[in-house]
Design a protein around this nucleic acid. Structure first.
Lengths: 348, 348
DNA sequence: GCTGTCCCTGTTAGCGCTAACATCCCCGGC
DNA sequence: GCCGGGGATGTTAGCGCTAACAGGGACAGC
């Protein structure tokens, strides 16, 4: 019991000497090989513990080609989703005994992506995880051929490659149905950027749910995730309302835009849910504290990270695993309510 | 020009063969050694380019003991600050040719910290960067002795060890002075958690600025970064106001709490800046879109990451570098304004 | 013209580990 | 009692690279 000291550069033979065996036996114990006498095994384990020995990853990587490290490439991590995904991934990787090496791309070009993957290869990572919810990232990823197992975290829609994702379509349907259930004749939608698969999936879910309910499908407003684009959409929607269009429910592709929209509405004298019901997507930490507390759709990033790592491990083991997209959850708060009286002109 | 193909396992001697030299000459070229004939150097460089060769990091690490990797330990990365710090760090590390390996601790115990550092050592990282803005993390870090260069990212206050940070005290003074300059007699403060050095530094700055201005120092309200605690503080402040206390300006230790407070005020019929001026800290992406747009203090995380890496590099080179804390910036938006008329009772 | 020196390049060893092979010992079967 | 087999352990080679040393050619100085 003396794992102290400034942890000098212990090597395997130090342990071997202490345990009175050869370094190879130590290696066998560490790697859980059979054919080691229980007594010997225990002696070696004790020596390891007493010395506080850790095998040198570089040496191990050199001979095995494996570093028990997963490389994670992402773009645009300033967004809440990607950041949370990173956290979920790290947790899951660590739990599985893997380290996570991170590369944040400035732009999702094929070159940048290839460079990141090449670096990971040179680093001898065991696998690469890539966040590819944007088209450019997905394309860049396609352009990169690597012998490394590659798992993508993408929108839950069409998962062509080994991939995990949250079911965006289902999330959008949840939000839309909630508004429809409250009695709204239809639901307006503020989208995310067109080059985001997630944004498109949310449009699809919204549209599908409206269609299923036989509700009219309004023209959607295009945003880009930023509060500012939500604000813009809010002003335009308010204008449409003044022009006589019936706008009683809005589903936005993320919470930040909802925040902007709420601000614009407020300026226009429109309050949720009194005048308009509003639903976001993401469940930002501040969502419950907006004015009013925002009804939104939550994605379980911890679960997402867990599944991603699970998938990586399966591929590393040669198993082919198919994982269902993670189902999102609707959180009903106070920004949604029944249709305001008098605002429903004689329906069809 | 054929860096294609499924990037087989190229090794140095492949390059050597192609260039018609020995592998050692290739090594010399790669490591920028002098005493290589310009002509030879160019030939080797061309071969490297044509083959798309990248040296194997594991082999290199084994012999040099350096992986050009920096380990980053942090707790609580769900917070905006830590997440942004991570991004800034990765960018800066990559720019310097380093990779970043991330460990997110579940709890900042000495054991967890030691484990993370041990893993980093086994990984042969060149240095460890630790986010230690919380007392437990800082303590845990103290308990870990490692021969690895250790740089901490902490609050800008008392930087005992090699550390970088944002000047929290200055930031708080900026916020407080801004409110004082608007004519407020004093400024109330909602703190962050007591075990956060940053929170304490912000208290200190607030107090110092009040003292400098000869303003009375109100009892502060204690929050914990969450919007919910800000909401709580808002209700209590509103109650105090009703009880006759003069509350015209509030400085909160972060934006999320400001958001909660704004919501509470709104419920109480209090609007900023009409009734009360509010300043936050952090400049969340949504801060400009709150109702009203929030005046806040921004920390430059990119710069922070840059300096942290710079410091690591300096230590690696044996140089002792002292870096000043990064100065924060006040962003004046619409949540602050002059003292509401009539709310200033006959002053002393 | 011979030697010393410097520059360039090649050869060798070894980083710490694991895989493959070699060895040893103990046991059972005939 | 001798031999075969298999489990436990040791020995050796080599992963891809860099550092240290070795060699060899060109050039200056005498």
């Amino acid at each position: 019991m003396e794992p102290e000291g400034p942890s000098r550069a212990l090597v395997m033979s130090d342990v071997a000497t202490r345990a009175g065996v050869s370094h190879q036996t130590v290696s066998r114990v560490i790697n859980g090989h059979p054919n080691v006498a229980p007594q010997t095994r225990e002696r070696v384990e004790r020596a390891i513990r007493e010395l506080g020995y850790r095998p040198n990853t570089a040496a191990r990587a050199l001979v095995t080609g494996s570093t028990r490290t997963i490389g994670f490439v992402t773009v645009n991590i300033n967004q809440y989703g990607p950041a949370q995904t990173l956290v979920g991934l790290e947790r899951a990787a660590r739990a599985a005994g893997y380290s996570l090496s991170v590369a944040v791309l400035d732009e999702a070009t094929a070159d940048a992506m290839r460079d990141a993957v090449d670096r990971f290869m040179a680093q001898s990572v065991d696998a690469v995880l890539a966040l590819a919810t944007y088209d450019d990232a997905a394309e860049a990823l396609h352009a990169v051929h690597t012998p490394l197992p590659l798992v993508t975290v993408q929108s839950g829609g069409a998962l062509e490659e080994p991939a995990v994702g949250v079911d965006q379509v289902a999330g959008a349907r949840l939000a839309t149905r909630h508004l429809l259930d409250l009695g709204h004749r239809t639901v307006h939608h503020v989208t995310g950027p067109a080059d985001s698969q997630e944004a498109r999936d949310r449009i699809e879910g919204w549209r599908a749910e409206l269609a299923a309910a036989g509700a009219p499908v309004p023209v959607c407003l295009h945003g880009d995730w930023t509060p500012s684009s939500g604000y813009e959409a809010g002003r335009r929607l308010a204008a449409r309302r003044r022009a006589g269009e019936q706008v009683t429910a809005v589903f936005l592709a993320n919470d930040q835009m909802a925040l902007g929209l709420l601000a614009a509405f407020h300026e226009e004298g429109l309050e949720a849910p009194r005048d308009v019901s509003v639903v976001g997507f993401d469940d930002l930490p501040e969502a419950p504290y907006l004015t009013p507390p925002l009804t939104t759709v939550r994605q379980d990033f911890a679960e997402l990270g867990h599944r991603a790592v699970e998938l990586v491990l399966a591929r590393l083991a040669g198993r082919d695993l198919h994982l269902e997209p993670v189902p999102p959850v609707l959180l009903v708060r106070s920004s949604t309510g029944p249709v305001p009286v008098g605002s429903t002109p004689a329906a069809v």
